[in-house]
Nucleic acid binder design. Structure first.
Lengths: 162, 162
DNA sequence: TATTGTTATACTCTATAACTATA
DNA sequence: TATAGTTATAGAGTATAACAATA
């Protein structure tokens, strides 16, 4: 057991003056949250291999599904990526017939991207057998742990939007 | 207000037979968790710009800091990446003098990678002003929300290890 | 032969800068 | 001039396959 050198406190920060230990606890929380989130993302990416779409594409398609027709720039904002990144994602979705492009009714610079019937079908199909690995792993949690995640997810979403 | 990020239907799955709605709720949880985690990762990556190290490098360095000298392959496993990926990360850390390589005492195929004094200093420096953005955002949460995250983090870690 | 690690190569994701078309 | 979007280009992160050194 190689000594925990420095980063990781045995003491989560319960000791001294409220403000000081509070800050320490927050830093520790931020650090551990960051690492946990990164590793889970890697794990999720590794698991997507059998999917026809990458996680990024699936996430964009999901946003299209929920949001309805939307401009590329707006979709980029929704997905928190830069417009050129979204251009590529949309190109793939269009190529595969999962999304369709229509001209904006009044502004000819803009397009409106919408999920296609095929895209919707894929989402439905996916919804049935989606996230198989994650669902499987979630089954191994206790109901209390799943509840804890349900509470945490909206908070994580807000952090991602901040 | 462009509704809900998550993939989900209007009906979270509260209806029918326990097992069925339980499964639906788990799928919904998996889906929303996946999307939230992806976006938070993007947000975190975007925030790392001023750092000298990328998140990936910092995460590996942090593991070195916590675990002590360790072989490249073992570090790759710890970080949940393939050995060639870790080779590159270690190369950067070595170049910058943040990690050092020593021969394994008995097996000449192996190396032992350890954090260097400079690496430890950087971790300490980072620890002071680390995750500034995340800490800042965490400050905007209520204590109850931060507690919810503290409960969730170990669960997320287990998911990442599964 | 099996294991540890590296090199070679390629693909995904993302970004910034420069450009085109339209407002 | 300003905005929406694309193209060009680059860099980080990751993977698989093939190889070298050692066990």
């Amino acid at each position: 057991m190689p000594a925990a050198t420095s980063t990781s406190p045995k003491t989560p920060g319960k000791s001294a003056s409220g403000a000081r230990s509070q800050r320490a606890a927050d830093e520790e929380l931020g650090s551990s949250l960051r690492i946990a989130v990164m590793r889970l993302t890697r794990r999720l990416r590794a698991e997507r291999s059998e999917q026809t779409l990458t996680l990024t594409q699936l996430s964009a398609l999901s946003s299209l599904d929920h949001h309805g027709p939307i401009s590329p720039t707006a979709l980029a904002e929704l997905e928190r990526v830069q417009p050129p990144s979204m251009t590529r994602v949309i190109a793939v979705l269009e190529e595969r017939g999962l999304a369709e492009r229509a001209p904006h009714p009044s502004d000819r610079r803009q397009s409106l991207i919408a999920i296609s019937p095929a895209g919707r079908a894929l989402m439905q199909e996916n919804r049935r057998r989606r996230d198989a690995w994650l669902a499987l792993v979630l089954q191994d949690l206790t109901p209390a742990e799943r509840d804890a995640l349900r509470v945490a997810v909206p908070i994580l979403e807000r952090l991602g939007e901040a």
